[in-house]
Computed example of a mutant assay.
Amino acid sequence: MKFLCTGADLLEATSRGFEIDGNKLFAVRRAGQAYVYLNRCPHRGVGLEWQPDQFLDPSNSLIQCATHGALFLIEDGECVAGPCAGQSLTAIDCREDAQGLWVDV
């Protein structure tokens, strides 16, 4: 497991991008739970963010791909709207402890 960030670095209803060992990842916190995904849209293989650390739609309730507007559920990465509907983001195993978030990449 590799250290990603402290818990305080990922606030509720926010997202952040990271790069670990050449892997581009992003993390989202919702209802106190952290979710980590590979930063790669299943539609075109592009990064999802429209600005650094901006992976969420305007309501902060869905992950949104900046390129074609695909929308993904935060909880499991499933695409619910857009050109890759039915596909999913690649989830990264993560755990959180007193030090912060750890990922298995």
Rank of each mutant, 00 (worst) to 15 (best):
V46T: 12
D104E: 14
A85L: 11
C84G: 03
V103T: 08
V28R: 13
H68R: 13
G47V: 12
R16P: 02
L73A: 11
R30V: 12
C79S: 01
Q64D: 02
D76S: 05
E96Q: 13
A66P: 09
V36E: 00
G77H: 04
F26A: 05
C94K: 11
A66M: 06
W50V: 07
L89I: 07
D9I: 01
V103S: 04
E19G: 00
A81M: 11
L11Y: 02
D57V: 04
A8D: 15
R30H: 14
N23P: 01
N60T: 12
Q33G: 01
E78T: 08
N39H: 04
L101P: 10
K2S: 00
T90M: 09
D57I: 05
Q54L: 06
L73W: 03
R30T: 12
L62H: 15
S15Q: 07
L25N: 05
Q99E: 14
S59L: 10
G82Q: 12
G22R: 00
Q87C: 07
C94Y: 05
A27I: 02
C84T: 03
H68A: 13
D104H: 12
A81R: 15
N39M: 06
A70N: 09
L25S: 06
A70E: 03
D21Q: 12
E75V: 06
P83Y: 02
A98D: 08
R44S: 13
D53H: 15
